[in-house]
């Protein structure tokens, strides 16, 4: 998958939820959105990117991505 595109998308999601008053709630909402709408291979890739530093992710999005539990690739 195009990691750059995934990062853009994730940051835009973060942009919406960042306005929530409570930081923890915002992080949880971002994580939940990714879990609800992103197919596992996309999540795996963004998690891998975040784990590797995730330089282009906004801090709140990086925090949310790192909370994601991703199941191993199904076969």
């Amino acid at each position: 998958m195009d990691t750059h595109h995934l990062v853009t998308m994730a940051n835009e999601i973060g942009g919406f939820f960042a306005s929530a008053a409570d930081h923890d709630e915002a992080v949880a909402a971002i994580a939940q959105h990714l879990k609800s709408f992103w197919e596992p291979r996309m999540r795996r890739e963004i998690v891998a990117y975040a784990t590797a530093g995730g330089a282009d992710l906004t801090p709140i999005v990086r925090e949310a991505v790192l909370r994601l539990q991703v199941s191993p690739e199904p076969r």
Binding site: M1, D2, H5, S36, F37, W38, E39, P40, R41, M42, S71, P74
Partner: peptide
């Protein structure tokens, strides 16, 4: 049934170019 969400149309295109 698979419990995880699937690919959306634009994601399908990205995944196709990705080879998966």
């Amino acid at each position: 049934l698979d419990p995880e969400p699937g690919l959306r149309i634009p994601n399908m295109f990205d995944a196709a170019l990705d080879g998966s």
